[in-house]
Amino acid sequence: MSASVRIPTILRTYTGGQAEVPAEGDTLAAVIESLEKNHAGISARVLDETGKLRRFVNVYVNDDDVRFSEGLATAVPDGASVSIIPAVAGG
């Protein structure tokens, strides 16, 4: 399973400035693990010390906020677009 992951500006230092990178995995957790393999350090920015999504990170699989589905266990279909976005905007 392959997904395309959109990287926010503040994490692009880990992806050599790339705004979008490919990753493998059939769940969000697996996709983040795959990201970490190719872009060391990125996982610790997205997940906290206990391995959960940080509370100020929003992640969307296609158009769905994973907090409305299964969080890190959310299924990532082949060809899906995953977006990582800082949650502090708005209001």
Binding site: P8, A19, A89
Partner: peptide, 29 residues
């Protein structure tokens, strides 16, 4: 919804289109 709009703006700011833009409630928040 507003949350969709917010997500869109957060993504736009990371795009070259957003160069020179001040999103008052995103990068100027």
């Amino acid at each position: 919804s507003y949350d969709d709009v917010n997500r869109f703006c957060s993504e736009l700011i990371g795009d070259p289109i957003g160069e020179g833009w001040g999103f008052v409630n995103v990068n100027l928040r």
